[in-house]
């Protein structure tokens, strides 16, 4: 009933063991389904992300983009199919979830900084308590990343004292302090005022240039054009189109993609 292109069928019939040993694969999602109660949010998702790839996921709201990347981090459970991150398959096993989360950083739409801790404490909390890094060393790393996101002078302030753009940059730095191999971005700029979007995107571009594996859910098509090496378009919980940015924007295949692009690019 569901027709997928050849390569997927092949993978689905059991060549996935190969991908586990394949060190170039960062994330492998195979035939994954997810439901919220009765609602079928993600339908037969197949996606392989290679190391160093920068993927932008676009699509109308409610298409399941955020849910997809939240599944990669096991913030949401999937009911069918496999998700393999860094060679570890995500199951209910807490040990594996911990392993994956330590390697995967996530940046949220609403920053989710810890409001009761200073910026520096926000950055050193996980390195100290998860990785067991001495405080002095964790603080040095934190300052290094704060400098990278260009706000070292805010280290001793509280999140509430910063602008949205600054908070989001802190959130990115907080993830980087755990030295993740993969970064997930869940609409990082959509809660920001227009003038702050740029400063956050700059940080993300900078990160991409360093070769970080990234999956970004975003509506920033300029960013997609400049940074992504693949753009994925989702609708109704499924991936309906993917291409390199050039082809994606100049010659969209699917009707829905065309409609979406016409709405978003005016």
């Amino acid at each position: 009933m569901s027709q997928v292109s050849e390569s997927t069928v092949e993978r689905a019939t059991g060549t996935s063991q190969m991908t586990v040993s394949d060190t170039d694969v960062a994330i492998d999602v195979i035939g994954m389904h997810k439901w919220y109660g009765d609602f079928h949010v993600l339908r037969d998702i197949n996606l392989r992300v290679m190391r160093g790839e920068r993927i932008v996921i676009a699509g109308p709201s409610g298409s399941g983009k955020s849910t997809l990347i939240r599944c990669v981090n096991r913030l949401e459970e999937h009911q069918e199919g496999q998700i393999i991150v860094n060679g570890t398959e995500l199951t209910a096993d807490l040990k594996r979830i911990d392993e994956v989360r330590r390697e995967v950083g996530m940046v949220f739409q609403h920053f989710n900084l810890f409001p009761h801790l200073t910026i520096l404490q926000n950055l050193t909390l996980a390195p100290i308590w998860v990785r067991g890094i001495p405080k002095a060393e964790a603080e040095a790393t934190a300052m290094h990343y704060l400098e990278r996101v260009k706000i070292p002078e805010q280290a001793n302030k509280f999140p509430g004292q910063l602008s949205g753009g600054q908070q989001q940059r802190v959130a990115i730095a907080r993830s980087l302090c755990m030295q993740p191999k993969i970064m997930l971005f869940d609409e990082p700029t959509s809660a920001l005022d227009p003038e702050m979007v740029k400063e956050v995107l700059e940080v993300m571009i900078n990160l991409a240039e360093d070769g970080m594996t990234m999956i970004c859910v975003t509506h920033e098509m300029g960013f997609a054009r400049q940074v992504a090496n693949r753009v994925i378009f989702m609708d109704q919980g499924q991936i309906i189109e993917q291409n390199d940015p050039e082809a994606f924007f100049s010659a969209p295949q699917h009707e829905r993609t065309k409609l979406f692009l016409s709405q978003i690019l005016h």
């Binding site: 913030l75 989360r101 996530m106 810890f114 909390l125 996980a126 308590w129 998860v130």
Partner: peptide
């Protein structure tokens, strides 16, 4: 809920999550 999620995505275990992030707030 985002606080729990942020703590989870940083790899904090449940006990640390409660002790360091949720309970103080």
């Amino acid at each position: 809920k985002g606080q729990t999620e942020a703590a989870q995505s940083l790899g904090l275990k449940e006990g640390d999550r409660l002790r360091l992030v949720i309970v103080p707030q």
